[in-house]
Design a protein around this nucleic acid. Sequence first.
DNA 1: CGAATTGAGTTTTTT
DNA 2: ACTCAATTCG
Length: 703
Amino acid sequence: MAKDPLLEDLNEPQKEAIIHLGSPLLVLAGAGSGKTRVITRKFAYLVKKKNIPASSIFTVTFTNKSAEEMKHRISELLNCHIKNSWIGTFHAQCNKILRKEIDNIGYKNNFTIYDDDDQGNLIRHILKELNIHEALFKGIACRISILKSSLITPEKFLEKGDGFGFDEKLGRVYLRYQDELKKCDAVDFDDLIGLTLRLFEEHPKICNKYKRNFEHILVDEFQDTNLAQYKLLTKLCAPDGNITVVGDDDQSIYKFRGAEVVNIINFQRDFPKSRVIKLEQNYRSTQNILNVSGKVIMKNPHRNQKTLWTNKGCGDKVSYCLLNTEEEEAKFVAKMIKDYYLKGIYDYKDFAVLYRINLQARLIEDGLRAEGIPYTVVSGTSFYHKKEIKDIIAYMKVVINPDDNVSFRRILNTPPRGIGLSTISKIEQEAKKQSTSLYKVIKQIPKSNSTVLSSAKEKLTSFLKTIDDLIMINNKNTADIMKTIIEKINYFDQLEELRIQNVMDLISSLENVTLQGFLDRTALISSTDCQNFDAGVSLMTLHSAKGLEFPAVFLVGLEEGILPYFKTFNELDDLEEERRLFYVGMTRAKERLFLSSVSKRRLYSKIQDQEPSRFIADIPKDCCHWVEKVMPSQTPIDSKNFVPKKPTIPFDIGCRVKHPRWGVGVVRECTGFGEHAKVTVNFPGVGIKKLIPNIANLKKVTL
DNA sequence: CGAATTGAGTTTTTT
DNA sequence: ACTCAATTCG
């Protein structure tokens, strides 16, 4: 045991976590304390020393990428390729189970996965039908997702329903939405988890099959699991079973997606025999970086106390820089990077620039380009979100599942083939009447006395023939199917060169995958997954940076309104999450950390005065190199008329306001702040109005 | 039916 | 500022 290579260069608590067996285990692992390492080593240890087959270990990672990395590392440790492994995200694992078993709960095994784009389209379609203001679709999609991940069905929600206003509508949409999904044999991300859970609950035999197979469960990033995912774990593992969860409450940054830090507390309740191990030695960062980030996170009231330490030296001081404009900030970042590069201290790939929101990337890009520095943006809109790609994918989805109405709607008149609005709406109506899919309605048209014009009938039949032909050839390999689709619909005929190139790239990425496998992969993949971090400076959001590390890190735009983001000002919980986001960003740095804010920023096409983030005040200055020297600016601030704007939202969402003309209404949404603030208010009987509070003379109504 | 124009909404974070 | 959808016109 003493000289086991699997337990080499590990500290005591890490070793304990790895060899612990026979009861549940909760590992509270601070940032950079080697938690992923614990999981990979434990996996290898179980296989090598305890003779557990790799296929009997259920391992959950947060992203597909970390799953791939983990497989790779485990293969190295075991010196052989692991096959049939269950290493993946919750969503990927559930998909794997459902593809085999979902027919037991009344779906077809060739079900379609709807990504949030598809989900949005469906919800908008429903809103249109129910005559609900369509712009609300985002908020509704978000609420539905949270309801689902908290295991509240539409029925339950309606039952509980305080049945007024927004919630009543939400309930109706939710019910319809679930209904439509079922009709289309489609599932959304939350269904992947929820339906697996339902499968296990309604079919204990199937559940037991999996439960028996999984001798051990390993969960990474446990702090970001939601209720449904947690419940799933309890289904797969006995209360005294072999489950190891690893997490850090300070790094929980997905509450908006339904993640429940409470799961860490619940774990100790639901697995009463569990042992807790803390990992507090940090292997990543210098002492100065730990001091600064530690002081900041300490201000959060609700957290497990832990103190990270390192035996690395103090290192360079953390630097904070207040600049005039965002252009200066970008220039500053680029200059610093170039400087370190030219001195030979770092390579370009050693740097990361992190920001709160994607649109900050543009400026930084400009700055880096001006200095000729290579970079890659871990982009918000990925390759798979491009129209031309989504179009082709929609065709492939219909080939596999013609009842998928969302994809069907998308391709019906794409590329334009003379099927117009009036025709489409007749088909829609008919489909609704018969409660069936668009595809099936069109199929009946030749036989039925449908009111569709005869010219349109011809076009529809010819379209249907195209689709049916494609369905017939479905046994060819995936690239061939795609080529045939493109040919049959003359897709390239009027497509720009660049878009054609994108589709060609897609085709060449298709070797050795089944059509179903390809569609699953594209649905579940994320932007970080296919990113190569060796191609220069990495630019990404704080969320994407989770789990990564870089020798030198820039955190930009540390201003009120950006971090913390202004939509989070109202909720105290959200503010804590913003702080954690800041913490996650800082703890990505191994050796050098640069923080910056600016005092003027162009936001929403208006120039705004910015104040430094409130979190900056919590930084101990003795670990810092503090620069507020503010370079001379072309547009000096007029100090007499300079009044810092308090970035506050005039009204809370949900509060009641009185308007002189429309009476009392409920606030739906607030955007912007200061004099640019706008509120959306729903006045019963009048409708939804967008107002500028200063002008509209709104008064808060207190009940 | 389709092209062109207007207009409105959107810019948090993501499996 | 920019994109995408609805509306209007030919």
